[in-house]
Amino acid sequence: RHRTIFTDEQLEALENLFQETKYPDVGTREQLARKVHLREEKVEVWFKNRRAKWRR
């Protein structure tokens, strides 16, 4: 597996949602994934990693 490289637009959308909710539900993740052309799984893992970074 290779590392996903997120575009600035994707990161902006992910960060904006993170400010709203640290734990978006699957529907919200799917909606964002469609909007920025990512797989929902990638969005889910990004949030998991972003929460870990936020806790540190």
Results as ranks from 00 to 15, higher is better:
1 R>W: 06
1 R>E: 06
1 R>A: 08
1 R>D: 11
2 H>E: 14
2 H>F: 11
3 R>Q: 08
3 R>E: 14
3 R>W: 04
3 R>C: 14
4 T>L: 12
4 T>R: 06
4 T>S: 09
4 T>Q: 13
5 I>F: 12
5 I>E: 15
6 F>Q: 06
6 F>M: 07
7 T>G: 04
7 T>S: 04
7 T>K: 04
7 T>F: 02
7 T>V: 01
7 T>Q: 05
7 T>A: 05
8 D>P: 12
8 D>Q: 14
8 D>F: 10
9 E>A: 04
9 E>S: 13
9 E>T: 13
9 E>W: 03
9 E>D: 13
9 E>M: 10
10 Q>A: 08
10 Q>E: 02
10 Q>P: 00
11 L>V: 10
11 L>S: 10
11 L>W: 05
11 L>E: 07
12 E>R: 09
12 E>W: 06
12 E>D: 14
12 E>L: 05
12 E>V: 09
12 E>T: 12
13 A>V: 06
13 A>F: 02
13 A>Y: 03
13 A>N: 08
13 A>K: 02
14 L>E: 01
14 L>R: 03
14 L>I: 04
15 E>Y: 02
15 E>G: 02
15 E>D: 00
15 E>T: 03
15 E>S: 01
15 E>N: 05
16 N>P: 10
16 N>A: 15
16 N>K: 08
16 N>L: 09
16 N>E: 08
16 N>Q: 09
16 N>I: 14
17 L>P: 00
17 L>G: 02
17 L>V: 10
17 L>A: 09
17 L>F: 08
18 F>A: 04
18 F>M: 04
18 F>Y: 07
18 F>V: 05
18 F>L: 02
18 F>K: 02
18 F>P: 05
19 Q>W: 08
19 Q>C: 11
19 Q>Y: 05
19 Q>M: 14
19 Q>P: 01
20 E>H: 11
20 E>Y: 05
20 E>C: 14
20 E>Q: 14
20 E>I: 11
20 E>S: 10
20 E>P: 06
21 T>F: 09
21 T>N: 11
21 T>S: 11
21 T>D: 15
22 K>P: 15
22 K>D: 04
22 K>A: 04
22 K>M: 13
22 K>S: 07
23 Y>W: 11
23 Y>A: 03
23 Y>K: 04
23 Y>P: 03
23 Y>D: 08
24 P>E: 03
24 P>H: 02
24 P>L: 01
24 P>T: 00
24 P>C: 03
25 D>G: 07
25 D>N: 12
25 D>H: 02
25 D>M: 01
25 D>P: 05
26 V>T: 12
26 V>R: 12
26 V>C: 10
27 G>W: 12
27 G>Q: 15
27 G>H: 13
28 T>L: 13
28 T>I: 11
28 T>W: 03
28 T>E: 10
28 T>D: 04
28 T>A: 14
28 T>N: 04
29 R>V: 12
29 R>S: 08
29 R>K: 05
30 E>W: 07
30 E>C: 13
30 E>P: 00
31 Q>M: 07
31 Q>S: 13
31 Q>H: 10
31 Q>V: 12
31 Q>L: 09
31 Q>E: 15
32 L>A: 03
32 L>D: 02
32 L>G: 01
32 L>I: 11
33 A>R: 01
33 A>V: 03
33 A>G: 12
33 A>T: 01
33 A>L: 03
34 R>E: 08
34 R>Y: 06
34 R>M: 11
34 R>P: 00
34 R>K: 07
35 K>Q: 05
36 V>C: 15
37 H>T: 06
37 H>E: 07
37 H>M: 09
37 H>C: 14
37 H>I: 01
38 L>E: 00
38 L>C: 09
38 L>W: 00
38 L>T: 05
39 R>E: 12
39 R>V: 13
39 R>Q: 15
39 R>Y: 08
39 R>M: 15
39 R>S: 15
39 R>I: 05
40 E>P: 14
40 E>D: 12
41 E>Q: 04
41 E>Y: 06
41 E>S: 09
41 E>W: 09
41 E>H: 08
41 E>T: 07
42 K>L: 15
42 K>A: 15
43 V>I: 12
43 V>K: 02
43 V>M: 05
43 V>W: 00
43 V>F: 03
43 V>A: 03
43 V>N: 00
43 V>L: 06
43 V>T: 03
43 V>S: 01
44 E>Y: 08
44 E>K: 14
44 E>F: 04
44 E>D: 13
45 V>N: 13
45 V>S: 15
45 V>E: 13
45 V>I: 11
45 V>A: 10
46 W>V: 00
46 W>R: 03
46 W>A: 02
46 W>L: 00
46 W>H: 00
46 W>E: 00
47 F>Y: 10
47 F>P: 01
47 F>M: 05
48 K>E: 09
48 K>Y: 09
49 N>C: 06
49 N>G: 07
49 N>W: 11
49 N>Y: 11
49 N>H: 11
49 N>Q: 09
49 N>I: 10
50 R>W: 03
50 R>V: 02
50 R>S: 03
50 R>D: 01
50 R>M: 04
50 R>H: 03
50 R>F: 01
51 R>S: 01
51 R>H: 02
51 R>G: 02
51 R>L: 03
51 R>C: 04
51 R>D: 02
52 A>D: 09
52 A>P: 01
52 A>K: 11
52 A>T: 10
53 K>Y: 04
53 K>H: 10
53 K>I: 15
53 K>G: 08
53 K>W: 11
54 W>G: 07
54 W>C: 08
54 W>P: 07
54 W>E: 14
55 R>I: 13
55 R>N: 14
55 R>V: 10
55 R>F: 12
55 R>P: 12
55 R>C: 06
